[in-house]
Design a protein around this nucleic acid. Sequence first.
DNA 1: CCGTTCTTTCAGAAATTTCTGAAAGTTCAG
DNA 2: CTGAACTTTCAGAAATTTCTGAAAGAACGG
Lengths: 195, 195
Amino acid sequence: MSPLAEAFVLHFGEMGSRWGINRTVGQIYALLYISGRPLPADEIAETLNFSRSNVSMGLKELQSWQLVKLQHLPGDRREHFSTPDDIWQIVRTLAEQRRRREIDPTLSVLRDLIVAQPSNEDERRAQDKLRQMHDLIELLTGWADEVQKLDTAELVSLLKLGSRVVGLLELKHRLPFIGQKRRETSPPEDSAAQI
Amino acid sequence: MSPLAEAFVLHFGEMGSRWGINRTVGQIYALLYISGRPLPADEIAETLNFSRSNVSMGLKELQSWQLVKLQHLPGDRREHFSTPDDIWQIVRTLAEQRRRREIDPTLSVLRDLIVAQPSNEDERRAQDKLRQMHDLIELLTGWADEVQKLDTAELVSLLKLGSRVVGLLELKHRLPFIGQKRRETSPPEDSAAQI
DNA sequence: CCGTTCTTTCAGAAATTTCTGAAAGTTCAG
DNA sequence: CTGAACTTTCAGAAATTTCTGAAAGAACGG
């Protein structure tokens, strides 16, 4: 492994462990990403100096997150693993999986606690705080859902626009039709150009 | 502690550990949040059944993240800790801190690796993948920076709008002035209403 | 200045997580 | 079928993280 790849793999492993992913799994993923070609488990084990069984565990974990693809290369019986070529796809998968595993269960817990009958003033106030958290998470995930639907080019434009989109927001209040779903028809170019 | 608060604290502790925060620290934070009043360390220790020293460690950690505020209550020598009342403030702090501790160092590593002279075709290709990751992270954090500047009301509008903002985006290409910073003057109401 | 109350530090214990080798399981070419 | 090549499982070893009690340190009222 080139020093470049090695530095990346090591850093990624450290970062993984700060985000609740174990170092080994992080390194395996980083290696697959940087290699850019499908690798068999034994090659991963050799490169990273992990036991073959450790790599097997790590790949199993990554598969359960749907972060790696398993494939067979012609003339080789071994299973090969790779990451998507498109890094945006990786981000989408990560977001989707974290949501399914952590956000949704949390929302469910919060909802259960919020609907319970409060038995005193203190509980009523506590429920109010839970409701605030629930609403915030729901707002964020609702937004994330919407954004997931966009194709990459649209998403990038949106991100580049950043907070300047707020300027558009003011406009929206005077242009009610824009706020509706995603309209099928555009207003005639010329009339728009009048503004 | 009410069963409601307890359920929340326990869940939050579990979630914390999936996000690289230790369970104890997660529980302490959850307790402070749900209590909604400043608590002294010994009361936290008693409520959560942790040793006093463990709580001290946890609070130190939370302080280093700037997630809790230390304050003194009149007539009590003990230090009391609390979370911000505004949950959006909590989100902002979290985003800011994670960025400072994890994102920025990662960008720095990626940049270092990208500028190095590739010694062969494989390294050149690897650098390209690193550049893709770098650009993606930079785009996302740049967006986050912009969004951090918004006040909560603006941010909420933006989130509620979700992907429908893309409709506005198309419009933007025909309304170049909107894309500039944040304009000082609005176009006349009437002409906008024509569309 | 005490002495009391409160807080922090830290070495080692306890708990948890990660990792490994050995063995069992699976697949497939011949 | 058979056996070689490959993969998974899992019990326990190793490493890491978390947690505690004891002791030291700091703050403060009197």
